[in-house]
Design a protein around this nucleic acid. Structure first.
Length: 279
DNA sequence: TAATGCACCTGTGGGC
DNA sequence: TGCCCACAGGTGCATT
């Protein structure tokens, strides 16, 4: 599942490959993944030149000439692939953009949760709902002090769902939320209001360190995530909690446990991450 | 108002 | 071997 590091790597891959390319045609096999009619989508995209690529939270934003931009969310199983025209087309390829260099940009998504939205560049933040997102954790403006303040505003609720709340902080999903909490030695069900300053600091440090390292190793490929070239990421081998149910904790050798929070799995070490609801 | 839980969807894997 | 069912998860929306 692409979270911030994976989407960042995809954006960097796109920046290397498609900027300056002209979209000569587009085919839409599954109209429900776009936010307009296929006809209108095609009109807006065809013959546009890809000007720039950026990321906000887990959304890829592609700025086109002609006044329109695309916003792509891969959700759980989405992939954005840059491949030669003649390369075999994978099952569940919903959109194909033909480029003027013999390559294609393909949107693939077996579970069909992802989307490719189009809107006027001037209004793209609104079309994609970017205003509702919390701070970008890797930006300079995301300071320790800001994080402390944001946490202190939320007295109720449990820490893991809060870390995954995109309105609180942008880009963390199930995998990195588990890894951050393991790093900070905090139980995923810990009430936010009971966290000490020191613990909040640890979470902050964990977010920065883990995301940067995951980007360095080109993301985690536990489900279907691949770079635009089709290569998987390499961060899985550094995962210390996520997906390790039944295995030994790398710190204390206690068996890693899995619990359900809402309908999501949370992996943690019951010895390092003791549930305490006091400071 | 904020927290919580469910539906969306399909591939995968376990049980029979 | 093949069928059935539970499960995986990001987000929007409904419910509490």
């Amino acid at each position: 599942m692409p979270e911030l590091p994976e989407v960042e790597i995809i954006c960097r891959g796109l920046a290397r490959t498609v900027i300056g390319r002209k979209i000569t045609n587009v085919r839409i096999a599954l109209p429900k993944v776009i936010n307009t009619t296929p006809r209108r989508f095609r009109q807006r995209v065809k013959n546009a030149i890809i000007r720039s690529i950026r990321r906000r939270a887990k959304i890829i934003i592609i700025n086109l000439s002609g006044g329109f931009s695309l916003g792509i969310h891969l959700k759980i199983s989405g992939q954005l692939l840059y491949a030669p025209k003649q390369a075999p087309v994978k099952k569940h390829t919903h959109i194909i953009f033909d480029l003027n260099n013999g390559y294609q940009l393909r949107f693939v998504d077996p579970r069909q949760f992802g989307y490719v939205k189009i809107g006027p560049t001037r209004q793209i933040n609104k079309v994609l709902g970017l205003e509702r997102f919390g701070p970008e954790p890797l930006e300079k403006s995301f300071t320790r002090h800001l994080f402390q303040e944001l946490i202190e505003r939320r007295r109720n609720g449990r820490i893991k769902p809060l870390l995954m709340n995109q309105g609180f902080i942008a880009g963390l999903g199930n995998i990195y939320a588990d890894e951050v909490l393991f790093y900070a030695r905090i139980h995923p069900l810990r009430q936010v209001g009971t966290l000490s300053r020191r613990k909040i600091n640890n979470i902050y440090t964990g977010i920065k360190r883990i995301l940067l390292k995951a980007i360095k190793y080109k993301g985690t490929s536990v489900d279907s995530y691949v770079e635009v070239s089709g290569r998987p990421g390499n961060y899985e081998r550094f995962l210390k909690a996520y997906g390790r149910e039944g295995e030994k904790c790398l710190r204390c050798k206690t068996t890693i446990k899995r619990i359900k929070i809402g309908s999501r799995s949370a992996y943690f070490c019951p010895s390092c991450q003791v549930k305490r609801n006091h400071r």
